[in-house]
Design a protein around this nucleic acid. Sequence first.
DNA 1: GTCGTACATGCTCTTGCGGTTATATAGCTG
DNA 2: CAGCTATATAACCGCAAGAGCATGTACGAC
Lengths: 124, 124
Amino acid sequence: MLLRLYSCLDMLGFVSAPFEVLAEPRRRQILDLLRQRPRLVGELTDELGLSQPGVSKHLRVLREAGLVGVRQDAQRRWYELRLEPLRELDAWLHPYRILWDRALDDLEDHLDTMPDEVRPRTEG
Amino acid sequence: MLLRLYSCLDMLGFVSAPFEVLAEPRRRQILDLLRQRPRLVGELTDELGLSQPGVSKHLRVLREAGLVGVRQDAQRRWYELRLEPLRELDAWLHPYRILWDRALDDLEDHLDTMPDEVRPRTEG
DNA sequence: GTCGTACATGCTCTTGCGGTTATATAGCTG
DNA sequence: CAGCTATATAACCGCAAGAGCATGTACGAC
């Protein structure tokens, strides 16, 4: 969805495509597999239980998003994980992470200043 | 895409829908706006430059994914951010974060054991 | 009650994704 | 060269998502 526009904007350095790309469960599965070691298209095809052209198509999307890299070796192509685009995901998440850290801090403060009578039991 | 299946699996506690939900730029934009404070549908409509029913539809998706909550006040509905589902995103990202932290460590080790002649200049 | 506001829902249309099959391309083998 | 392997690309199909418009619903004001 909107992938075409986004891969276009992406080339101009505007938007983070990783979200759209990783919305696909199979593509996340591919990344999970590549986390262990580089793989051939054939391996991925077996693991995913998908047609080879289907896998190639997903790999193309991942490649254009910079999430995987390819190393050619005769007819074979070793696909490997590239981490950089995931940092954009992480960056988007950051302000939210701050919020939930702060929520935890507030909770602690609340417990600290709570009178003993109504204070929940702390184990140990 | 596959949203129906996923919201179904989600109710059973199986899969993380946040990826599919946040693939939509407008929905991310909504969350970004709600990060500051709760908002009315009308406000969001103005900010997004989208039709009101369009906004309501996105809000419905966000609600079903647990990413926003609603508080009703007469005819008005205050939508507010809910952080919990974002933790699933964070959790998925975690093994990758470990990888890129390790990559940094390896780089440091490499620099530490590198002979001075070929060692890149460190500023300062 | 009627009217106006704030929002949700239903419908229809278009578009684009994800899938498969068939075919093209590239490289090795003999 | 022909034939096999590994992968990419093309062509096509089905379906669901996103957008707009019209309508329904709930609540307050009068």
